[in-house]
């Protein structure tokens, strides 16, 4: 029988560290995918998608903020300091979200879809978990996330089965991004503790669920995966592609010039 923890104060020291590790992964993935989404503001191929990517970016950054606020309650730096003051190797996001989209809309769409399926499964797991404040938050965020998933479910078959060109662009995106998507489920030292405390599913279990959900939709979209693809790991332990360094240089520029600057 797993005990329910009504507040963050109910966490013992090792479980608290595991929750902090988990929250950093969730928060960093969300803010970086949000930042990548915002890069389409003003540039998406059609107006509706400009609005969609901008809105989803706003949601994802809002979700990230709630995770950073919870981290702050657990004794970590305040959200602004955490996002604008942290060094590259301290970030815990997966390479999937770090990669620069290079104005490739098919890749951005597939990346966002891969992330949203994973994020929905994580929120679902947290919502059923034993850490009450996090379960409550996850239920709230799920109610917004469903619209992101709907967006992905609409576009995957539409472009996968559209023209030869759209199909090829989507297939290239899947080929490039699938190994990075699998990398989202890189196991960390927190897996066992979170599982034992009933807070969050193990990463390998989440990965199984993600693969099943994504395979189904890719199949319906006439897109194929390379079953032998091996995951790109490293993000969870601070090893990132150069693209993330470039992103952080831009995002943290003002803060580095003057940490006390008021917006």
């Amino acid at each position: 029988m797993i005990a329910t923890m009504e507040t963050l104060n109910d966490l013992d020291a090792p479980t608290k560290s595991a929750v902090i590790d988990l929250l950093y992964r969730l928060a960093d993935d969300a803010i970086i995918i949000g930042h990548r989404g915002s890069e389409w503001t003003g540039f998406a191929p059609i107006l509706e998608e400009d609005i969609a990517f901008s809105s989803m970016a706003q949601d994802d950054m809002g979700h990230a903020l709630t995770f950073y606020q919870m981290l702050h309650e657990l004794g970590e730096p305040d959200p602004d300091t955490n996002v604008f003051g942290r060094k590259l190797e301290q970030w815990k996001c997966a390479s999937l979200v770090s990669l620069c989209s290079k104005r490739d809309w098919a890749k951005s769409l597939v990346r966002k879809y891969f992330y949203d399926v994973a994020e929905s499964l994580r929120l679902e797991s947290l919502a059923q978990g034993s850490l009450v404040p996090l379960a409550q938050l996850a239920r709230k965020l799920s109610s917004e996330k469903k619209y992101h998933l709907m967006h992905g479910h609409m576009w995957m078959p539409r472009l996968g089965q559209g023209t030869d060109e759209s199909h090829q662009l989507m297939q290239d995106a899947v080929d490039t991004l699938y190994p990075h998507a699998l990398g989202m489920f890189e196991s960390t030292g927190a897996d066992d503790l979170l599982d034992q405390a009933g807070i969050f599913l193990r990463e390998d279990e989440l990965r199984k669920r993600w693969v099943a959900a994504v395979d189904k939709v890719l199949g319906e979209s006439s897109l194929k995966i390379n079953a032998k693809a091996s995951p790109v790991y490293g993000g969870r332990s601070g090893k990132h592609p150069d693209d993330l360094a470039t992103l952080l240089d831009g995002m943290q520029l003002v803060y580095k010039l003057d940490p006390s600057a008021k917006w």
């Binding site: 509706e48 609005i51 969609a52 706003q58 619209y147 609409m154």
Partner: peptide
Amino acid sequence: LESIFGPTLCRSI
């Protein structure tokens, strides 16, 4: 439905 997302987070078009 024209667009799942609209001028504010809470609206669709």
